[in-house]
Amino acid sequence: MRTLKKSWVGIVAILVSIPVFLVPFAFIILTAMKGKLDAADLGFTWPKKIELWDNIVGVVQARDGQALVAFINSTVLTVASVTLLVILASMVAFVLQRRPSRWNGLINFLVLSGLIIPPAVVPTITVLQGLQLFGTLPGLILIEVAFGMSFCVLLFRAFLATIPREVDEAAIIDGAGTLRLFFQVIFPLLRSVVITVIVVQSVVIFNDFTNPLYFLPGDANATVQLTLFNFQSEFNTSWNLLFTDILLITIPPLVMFLFFNRQIVAGLASGSVKG
């Protein structure tokens, strides 16, 4: 009786999850496989003829291969920003967690405000213009680093608190200097949280739309999210191509999800409820 009741809840949950969560993704895939006319009526039907490959070629060739350029740009942006974030944020968190100083209160305050305060758009643009970095990929990389710093510092700091000080003391007694202590002794111990930071931040930065919109204008160096947004108005007669593009940019997060599901979930929920 009891097991019957249990499976009943499960079956209801599965039945609800199909239209709510699976159908929208199925719709993306089906529309991406259709021909132009077939896709035009926006129906949830099996494609008359599967033209997925033609659609992929169509997306890549649209606007002189902008989608491909955008994909490269997004990859460079994501890899560079995440690399910088991991190194810089772990260094900050290390000193912040280990060394009490009168600055700590201020630093903690600044880190927390980074999570809450919405960035001031136009003043940031003028600063970037002053540095000759406005509209350039390096400029956007620095922006992503600045805006992502707080999140990463807090994750690293929480994890560093679980690494005993005795590790540091042993290394110092063995004659390790600052750099050696951090990069050869501590950093390797951060492996699991480094993976979490990499995975979460790359999904966030790859999916970022607002910052490229403001700080990297222009078609020449668009990112995938901007390209998708621009295709929305241009392809409103070719839904098949639009949805093929959506399908293509969903693949990187999907791969991350398949390989690192546990780390993502752990990272996002870590410590939230242990009071």
């Binding site: 900050v92 600044l110 710093m149 110092i172 200097g177």
Partner: peptide, 27 residues
């Protein structure tokens, strides 16, 4: 000397202050 050097803060602080804190105050 403390093994936890303050200069670890330097580069992140510059990026953070120039691109986030300063624009916030300027706003």
């Amino acid at each position: 000397k403390s093994p936890y050097s303050m200069w670890f803060y330097l580069i992140p602080a510059i990026i953070y202050v120039v691109l986030f804190i300063a624009p916030t105050f300027a706003s």
